[in-house]
Simulated scan of single mutants.
Amino acid sequence: MKQIAEQYKRELLDNVLPFWTAHSRDEENGGFFTCLDRQGKVFDTDKFMWLQGREVWMFSMLYDKVEPRREWKDMALLGAKFMEQHGRDAEGNWYFSTTREGRPLIQPYNIFSDCFAAMGFGALYKIEENPVYHTIAKDTFENILRRRNDPKGKYTKNVPGTRSLKNFALPMILCNLSLELEHILGSEKVNEFIPEVLGEVMDVFYHKETGLVLENVLADGSFSDSFEGRLLNPGHAIEAMWFIMDLALRLNDPALAQKACNIGLKMLEYGWDQQYGGIFYFMDLHNHPQQQLEWDQKLWWVHLETLVFLAKGWQLTGNEACRTWFDKVHTYTWEHFKDKEYPEWFGYLNRQGQPLLPLKGGKWKGCFHVPRALYQVWQTLEKKPSFHSQAVIV
């Protein structure tokens, strides 16, 4: 596995990161361009706050964890300055998008802009102890908690009281975000918070009858037999399980790590396309026709987050299924998503595994899932095994 770890390391440092440092900087207005074509040319200049925050986090984290390269810190500071100046409304909510110059375009309907702003400024504070960054991260996190039960607020399209659903994505992200911000929030607050988000992810959204993880449940946690209630997103569930394994490591809870590993493997087996390979984007719990027309596409982040999950599952539990699946998903991912001619990776494939779009970044794809996964797999495979040396393999 050392050779594979080196492969991920080299791809991160020699291919993917240079692409973003060379092409995403907006030297004139600050912040980052994310709409980049196959060769890195900017094809749209709108700026999306959640992607700005993600890129600030990425370069801050790399500066902190890998090497204190000045260019990485400069990238993080460039994005943070733009976000601080242009990213929020009067109530402190983060816009979804702005113009190149920073004029608001789309209202702060999407709480994930706030999640990644908090994550970005929290990571930046580790490498540049500016109290402003600490305050932004803390205030944003507290605002997320205030909004969490009604994240879209006045921007929601749903009629109140008819079919009130809650979504898996926010508690899933909070599992990771709480650890990312522990130096901001304090260990005591994180310790109080962890059981709540763990309960949401591992009990409320976990569908015991099938062993799968639902994307939406009714407000009381029960199943909704509707398009939204039957919706499965294998990538989301699998990504969440490596977040849970990180929490298990922090809590020294090998049973929790094993449970997360088992759930993630179940989702992967269910979501794998037996005909063409790769993992479906969306599925229906009862195999009914789906409302998402892109249900059978193969997306970059789904496969990369699965590789992180499998690496952590193998490292923490020693489950041989993780190693077998890692080899299978690794082969598919590197054969289909990695661009053999130009840097960075394709994001969107059709069911057969052919690129649908030549872009390397856009409204939804930025400097995040590819480099984070490369970093995580590299780091994980270089570590010595953890829990499974304590004889918890099942």
Rank of each mutant, 00 (worst) to 15 (best):
N319Q: 13
N167W: 01
N167D: 13
L381V: 05
R69H: 09
L256H: 09
Q354G: 04
T21V: 15
K157G: 12
T140S: 12
R103K: 15
V394Q: 14
L268P: 03
T99Y: 05
Y133L: 02
G221T: 11
L105T: 08
Y109Q: 11
D37L: 07
C367K: 07
W301N: 00
C115Y: 00
S224M: 10
Q352S: 14
E200N: 10
Q275V: 13
G211Y: 11
Y95E: 08
A373T: 11
I393F: 07
I127D: 01
Y348D: 08
F43K: 10
M245W: 02
N167Y: 05
T324D: 14
R54W: 09
H23N: 15
F346M: 11
A219D: 12
K384H: 10
R103A: 15
F223L: 13
N233G: 09
T317I: 00
G122I: 03
E28G: 02
Y133D: 04
G264K: 01
K41R: 15
W50P: 00
E129M: 04
P289M: 02
L349K: 05
P355A: 09
E182D: 13
P358G: 09
Q290S: 11
H236I: 10
G211H: 07
D253C: 11
V190T: 08
Y63D: 02
F368I: 04
K152Y: 08
G102S: 13
H336V: 05
L256P: 07
R147W: 00
K81I: 01
M61T: 07
G361V: 06
A22F: 04
N130K: 09
K266E: 13
L165C: 06
T135L: 02
G87I: 02
V66L: 15
E182V: 15
W345P: 11
V201F: 04
C115A: 12
F326H: 12
K384R: 14
G79C: 09
Y375E: 07
C367N: 14
L78F: 01
F193I: 08
Q275N: 13
I111Q: 02
E192T: 08
F82I: 08
K138D: 10
A80C: 05
W325L: 06
G87R: 01
G120R: 04
G211P: 05
A260C: 07
E320L: 11
E67T: 07
K2D: 14
N287Y: 10
G347H: 03
